[in-house]
Amino acid sequence: MTDETPPGRDTSGRFVKRAAETVNAMSRTNDEGIHPMSKVLFGWTEAKNIGAILFWTLAILSIILVLADLVIDRHEYLHFAESIGFFGLWGFISFSFVVLMGWPLGRLLRRDENYYGDAGGPPDDIDPDLEGKPLHGPNGTHGGHH
């Protein structure tokens, strides 16, 4: 069909068709279960040394932002917050504190998954094609025992 269309419309027609084919290809998961868009959007996360790159990028960015405090005059209602790098420091301390508290709190508060009785499986309305999805078994019936 495309061969017989006049050359003037041919290019745009082929362009549209190619675009459609690209979209189609980009939205079809391949056999290994990898979505082509993932390469486009997040391929960079698979780079070698991504950890080190991110670490140093953020380290440098943080330093720049703190140094920017020297240049930019912030006006805060609370004057102590105007000190250099206050927000960065507070953010760093808060974040680290929260994460590190996870260790003792986890030990203190974490219990077995079935602590309150049967934890139950996933809800009924998950993907019906999902392998190993539990059928309506004893979990699915609403027994009225208390």
Binding site: F55, L58, A59, L61, S62, L65, V66, D69, G85, F87, G88, L89, W90, G91, F92, S94, F95, S96, V99
Partner: peptide
């Protein structure tokens, strides 16, 4: 600043 240093902490 807050966000960058917190992510850095992460």
């Amino acid at each position: 600043q807050l966000l960058a240093l917190a992510v850095f902490a992460f």
